[in-house]
């Protein structure tokens, strides 16, 4: 029945343009550690990032909510989601995180996008040789 009702409206054309409306930004990041055999669990990984936010922005910064959408323990690669207003804060604290348990480390930001979809279709990953 529902389909029949819609037939009348099926020719209606609608176009909506949304500018800067994305509520979240998504980051693909990879943690590089001096000792490559070190393993972190997903919870440890997130706590480590929170500690970075706290050391740069204090208690208020540590309250910034972000999500660890996906985490690969073998490659220490993660997908993060953060509200668009918090992107710069999160990114800067990742940049300044320099040591994990007394060993040098660095976060590599592989990709940043307002669309989660874009993170699965990065043409820079195309390998032909």
């Amino acid at each position: 029945m529902r389909r029949v009702d819609r037939k009348d409206e099926s020719t209606v054309y609608q176009r909506v343009v949304l500018k800067n409306a994305s509520p979240y930004h998504y980051m693909k990041v990879c943690l590089v550690l001096e000792d490559e055999s070190t393993r972190l669990s997903a919870v440890e990984f997130k706590c480590f990032i929170i500690s970075g936010l706290k050391s740069l922005f204090g208690e208020v910064g540590a309250a910034l909510t972000f999500d660890l959408l996906k985490y690969d323990e073998d490659t220490l690669t993660a997908l993060l989601r953060v509200c668009s207003r918090g992107l710069v804060k999160l990114w800067s604290s990742l940049t300044l995180l320099g040591s994990y348990q007394n060993q040098a480390c660095a976060f590599r930001v592989l990709q940043v996008s307002p669309y989660l979809l874009a993170l699965t279709g990065n043409s820079r990953e195309l390998q032909l040789y």
């Binding site: 099926s10 909506v16 343009v17 994305s22 930004h25 992107l87 307002p114």
Partner: peptide, 17 residues
């Protein structure tokens, strides 16, 4: 708080149109 510009355009139409 600001992020670079992004655009999302949504359209609704019909293949029969």
């Amino acid at each position: 708080d600001q992020t670079p510009r992004s655009l999302l355009i949504s359209e609704r139409s019909s293949f029969l149109d």
